[in-house]
Each structure stands twice: as structure tokens, then as C-alpha cells.
Amino acid sequence: MTTDFLQNALANATLDTAVIGGCLIGLAATWLYLSIGRIAGISGIAARALRDPGWPLMFIVGLGIGGWLAAVIGASLSADNLASAATASSTSIVSHLTDTTQRWIWLVAGGLLVGFGTRMGSGCTSGHGVCGIARLSPRSLVATCVFLATGMVVATLLSSSGLLTSSSGLLTTSSGL
């Protein structure tokens, strides 16, 4: 049973893109530190960008440009063309708008908790999970264990109770690009 569980987990995973994307994230964190001595923690940078429109805001804009470029190039590589990538993003807005109201409640509740929690805990997945652990920070190692644990417990409980699955279409495995 345990082996089935792990085999499924590996079969569901998209390992090649996970490793390529992960290496890029590590490279970006390295570059931000090597070039201007800053930690690539996005919740911290976002909070700073709200009052300091200098490098933090440029980093945020870069996130959008890089993400958009990767989505467009990825869509064109995977047999689709640019036009269909554009329509895909606009139809997805419509389909998400007509999504169940239940999903909206999860998104709003989740957003409030992530905003409050990442400020209180001074970091998120990037700041603690990647940069902090890479710097061998004990605070970040503990923080990462805590948010992974609470995240897994809540998602697993909600899913087994049918609450999360029904609203988010969790069982439809979509591969990102």
C-alpha cells in the first residue's frame, strides 16, 4: 500500500519541469543576493514594495514579466500557438468566475491567512523554504516544517471530508503549462 502511494506520487509528479523550474528559482535567489545582497523572500519584498517603489517593485514587475514569458513560450512549445495561449487565459477567467462560490470563500480566507501569517512569521515559501534553509537559518527550517505540516494536515482533512475536492477540482491533474 505504501509503495502504491509513492508510485502514484511519482507518476503524478512532473519531475523534469519541477527540477528545471526549481533550479531557475535557486538561480534567481543567488543572483539577487550576489548582485545587491538581498534575500529573495517574496512576502518580505512585497511588503517592502508597498512603501518603497525601488528595487522591490522592480523585482515584483520582473516576476510578472518572467511568468508571462514562460507561459507564452511554454504554450507555443506545447503545440499550441500564441493566439490560443491568449484565448486560454481569457476563457479561464470566465470559467473561474463561474466557478462555485465555495471556491471563492477558500481563496479569500486563504489570502487573508497567508497575508497575515507571512508577515507575522516573517517569511513564506521562498523566504523561509528556499532562501532561509539555503542560508542554514534555524528559524527558517522551523518555519518551513510548521507551514508544511499545517498545510498538509488542513488540505488532507478538507479533501477527505470532500470540502476541498468538490470546490477546486483537485482531482483533475493539470500539468501547469
Partner: peptide, 14 residues
Amino acid sequence: VAGIIFGAGLVISG
């Protein structure tokens, strides 16, 4: 530049 690389990494990784 760091943001662009980071954003691309997030999208590519899914």
C-alpha cells in the same frame, strides 16, 4: 532580472 528568472521558474515548475 532576478524577478524575471524567478517568475519563469515558478511557471515552468507548475
